[in-house]
Design a protein around this nucleic acid. Structure first.
Length: 656
RNA sequence: GCCGAUUUAGCUCAGGGGUAGAGCAACCGCCUUGUAAGCGGUAGGUCGUCAGUUCGAAUCUGACAAUCGGCACCA
């Protein structure tokens, strides 16, 4: 039977019978045949040697194709596994997939690997690449495969085969004498991988991702088409490290953390100035959007968290305080430090009788929360034990979910824009398998969220089954200056909490009704968001956020009196300004404040003091601008206005 | 919580069984300076904590803590 194969340019090739990707490439040209790495058949990446059994759309994959990286990385993972087994006999192999920018392979071995082993392993990998052993796909009988791997004492591989669905063929790839169970596809020989790879990290990982299982040793690596791409990637990692918020936080003296308060932040004056600039901005936005701000207690009797359900479900992650009774030391009262703000907000809602006319009631709080995060989970400002959420709960009717969600989307979009981000993507997490509530209310809530997203012009995808047990949610991701995505914003529909804590309102007919609660946050945690913000701007904040917006520097001490006058004018105009009258050369002062990423440096010497002017130098620029003092203060104060109060796009550029 | 690594001066880091070193910062002088490092000097550390081995531990061993890279977790 003949095959009709359609090429990407639309041309169709006919073959009399079975044909492999390599034969197809050869028929097109010799050059293509030698460049071919794999073939894409109806969108599925396949080995070059595998026969194409039906009419299909085909594409020959070469080193230039985007798919080449997948092939190179997966082959590199196999080469890593072979190298490790050659060097460390007795090591068991498990799985080795691709990840973003690279690959990993999980090994089982009693002795830990060390990064000192990396050069040796890389050397062996290069040797295997040089051997250029053909990679051949073999179809095996299931029992035979199990026997084969068990005989080699590869119990993880044997377990994988046992668990494969019965109808799935067992394929084993042989590269030279080394064999591994794999779905494929692979390139034709080990030489195709090339040597633009590097082993990067060593880590522990659970077998099959389950903490009940054995811990394996994972070796991470990266692989690219050529040395140039590899070097570019390594440089990119270095750049990301340079903007690490923990490093910048220290360099710019924004905050610190210490052993005695693990997971909590000591904000220094400059870090706190940044924090407050952000907090004040958020406060203006929610006020404008019709929220009321409240502030609720940190400590609650355990009975409230038992009623809300948190004590039982998340109790392990809560900080609990045992209080001994004065009269009876045997008697202990438990209180919990709040891990979230919802129970508190429901208490405020329940004060007095609420009418349908009060809805939607948007109750906001900069909620200070504590969660006892696992040691290994903590990470700078990104994951902490004490943090503040830009939290709010919207009490509304089921019918108001859509309009409130739409308003929230608009608020979030405008805030991300002001803060220099774009919405990268949105996910709608819908009903999970284990859930409460009627199908009808789920239908309604999911549709309301989907319609709100459409109304806001936001594209989204479905995060299937990942909603809470009581309602669906939206997850908003933003993209930072180096392309990373972070989930910050969230909106969650919750009819459960009002039920559990007995919140009611009186409807138009005088009946008691349950409101729905929308939990929502734009930034999520202010702490975490500031970490992201620091990395996004690499410490070079836009003027309105900069902890120190301007420094007045004297050239000689003749100008000191005048410099103080300049400082006073700037401060009076509302700028966060400082003065530097150290007996240092102006070069040294410029350098110091530039390294501190101060956006505005105002130099004053004898000339300026006499003429009542300032010489303005902007961060990153070399030009200086001579301005009259009064003019300068007014101009800079206007430039320093937050984006919601002043001129937008004031010319500040993000340094990529 | 799990696997591995790390912890030495304010910061970045070197060293290493006989009680500690550099650069920068700080402090004190001198220099009075024109847009990314002026010169000299001084001071600063129970070498993460607690045990153990040893004549002697910052160094070796163990436990604990924190941090880092992952994993698991993230209401």
């Amino acid at each position: 039977m003949s095959r009709l194969l359609t090429l990407p340019d639309g041309s169709v090739k006919e073959f009399p019978g079975s044909v492999t990707g390599l034969e197809l490439a050869t028929s097109i040209g010799k050059g293509l045949a030698s460049a071919a790495l794999a073939v894409k058949v109806d969108g599925e990446l396949r080995d070059l040697m595998r026969p194409i059994e039906k009419d299909a759309k085909v594409e020959i994959i070469t080193r230039k194709s985007p798919e080449a990286l997948e092939l190179i990385r997966h082959d590199a993972a196999h080469i890593l596994a072979e190298a490790v087994q050659e060097l460390f006999p007795g090591t068991q192999v498990t799985i080795g997939p691709n990840v973003e920018n690279g690959f990993y392979y999980d090994f089982a071995r009693d002795e830990p690997f060390s990064t000192d082993d990396f050069p040796k392993i890389e050397e062996k990998m290069r040797e295997i690449v040089k051997r250029d052993s053909p990679i051949v796909c073999e179809r095996w009988d299931r029992d035979e495969a199990i026997k084969f791997f068990e005989a080699k004492n590869e119990k993880y591989k044997a377990e994988l085969i046992r668990d494969l669905p019965a109808d799935q063929p067992i394929t084993v790839y042989a590269q030279g004498a080394w064999k591994d169970l794999c779905r494929g596809p692979h390139m034709a020989s080990t030489g195709k991988t090339g040597t633009a790879f590097k082993l990067l990290k060593l880590a522990g990982a659970y077998w099959r991702g389950d903490s009940k299982n054995a811990q394996l040793q994972r070796i991470y690596g990266t692989a690219w088409r050529d040395e140039k791409e590899l070097q570019a990637y390594l440089t990119q990692i270095e750049e990301a490290e340079k903007r690490d918020h923990r490093k910048i936080g220290k360099e710019l003296d924004l905050f610190h953390m210490q052993d005695e308060a693990a997971g909590s932040v000591f904000w220094h004056p400059k870090g706190w100035a940044l924090y407050r600039a952000l907090e004040n901005y958020v406060r203006r936005q929610i006020e404008r959007a019709g929220y009321v701000e409240v502030h609720t207690p940190q400590l609650y009797d355990s009975s409230l968290f038992k009623a809300s359900g948190h004590w039982d479900v998340y109790g392990d992650n809560m900080f609990k305080v045992a209080i001994k009774s004065e009269e009876n030391p045997e008697e202990i009262k438990w209180v919990g430090i709040k891990p979230m703000n919802c129970p508190g907000h429901v208490q405020v809602f329940k004060q007095g009788i609420k009418s349908y006319r009060d809805l939607p009631l948007r109750m906001a709080e900069f909620g200070n929360c504590h969660r006892n995060e696992a040691h290994g989970a903590m990470h700078g400002l990104i994951r902490v034990r004490q943090f503040v959420q830009d939290d709010a709960h919207i009490f509304c009717t089921e019918d108001q979910i859509q309009s409130e969600s739409l308003a929230f989307c608009a608020l979030l979009q405008s805030m991300y824009k002001d803060l220099g981000f774009e919405v990268a993507r949105v996910r709608l997490a819908d009903r999970p398998e284990k859930r409460i509530g009627t199908e009808e209310s789920w239908d309604k809530a999911e549709a309301a969220l989907a319609n709100a997203l459409k109304g806001a012009g936001l594209k989204y995808d479905i995060n299937k089954g990942d909603g809470a047990f009581y309602g669906p949610k939206l997850e908003f991701y933003l993209r930072d200056a180096i392309g990373r995505e972070w989930q910050c914003g969230t909106l969650q529909v919750d009819p459960n909490m009002p039920e559990r804590l007995d919140a009611v309102y009186i409807d138009e007919t005088g009946q008691k009704r349950r409101p729905v609660m929308l939990h929502r946050a734009v930034l999520g945690s202010l702490h975490r968001f500031l970490g992201i913000l620091i990395e996004h701007y690499a410490g070079k904040f836009p003027l309105w956020l900069a902890p120190v917006q301007a420094v007045v520097c004297t050239i000689t001490n003749d100008a000191e009196t005048y410099a103080k006058e300049v400082l006073a004018a700037l401060t009076a105009a509302g700028l966060r300004a400082q003065i530097d009258v150290r007996p240092e050369k102006i070069n040294a002062k410029i350098r110091d404040h530039s390294l501190q990423k101060v956006p505005l440096i105002l130099v004053v010497g004898k000339k300026e003091a006499e003429a009542k002017t300032v010489a303005l130098r902007r961060l990153g620029g070399e030009a200086q601008e001579i301005l009259n003092l009064g003019e300068a203060a007014a101009k800079l104060a206007e430039e320093a206005l937050p984006p919601d109060l002043g001129i937008r796009d004031s010319g500040f550029r993000i340094q990529k």
